[in-house]
């Protein structure tokens, strides 16, 4: 079945998901939610790459998505290790508790 590429709608979806992730990152105080919202934003970036690759009928967009996937995996493993260490030392998941550098 031949259909047209929904380029604008795809980019719009990527933009909406990115903005939702941005709102979550800015407003949540639980560090687990912040990491989840970072994942949403990375995924939205990958979606934009795939949409652009579909528009120009090239595989480059999908290659970029694979790189974003590898980067997200590395980022989330280090981030979750940091969360574990934070919970171990501070007994909380509130990012506002990490203000020791202030004084």
């Amino acid at each position: 079945m031949m259909t047209h590429i929904p380029t604008n709608e795809g980019l719009l979806l990527a933009a909406i998901l990115f903005l939702l992730g941005l709102i979550g990152t800015m407003t949540r105080r639980n560090i687990i939610y912040i990491l989840m919202c970072l994942e949403i934003m990375l995924n939205a970036c990958g979606l934009a790459f795939v949409v652009a690759g579909a528009k120009w009928m090239q595989a480059d967009g999908q290659v970029m998505f694979i790189f974003i996937l590898a980067m997200a995996a590395a980022e989330v493993s280090v981030g979750l290790a940091l969360i574990l260490q934070m919970h171990h030392q501070h007994k909380t998941v509130d990012v506002n508790a990490l203000n020791q550098l202030k004084d």
Partner: peptide, 19 residues
């Protein structure tokens, strides 16, 4: 305006060759 191009499926083979 949106693109009027037809949708083409990019196969895993092509992605691997580019990668």
């Amino acid at each position: 305006k949106g693109s009027g191009r037809q949708l083409t499926v990019i196969s895993p083979q092509e992605v691997g060759m580019t990668l």
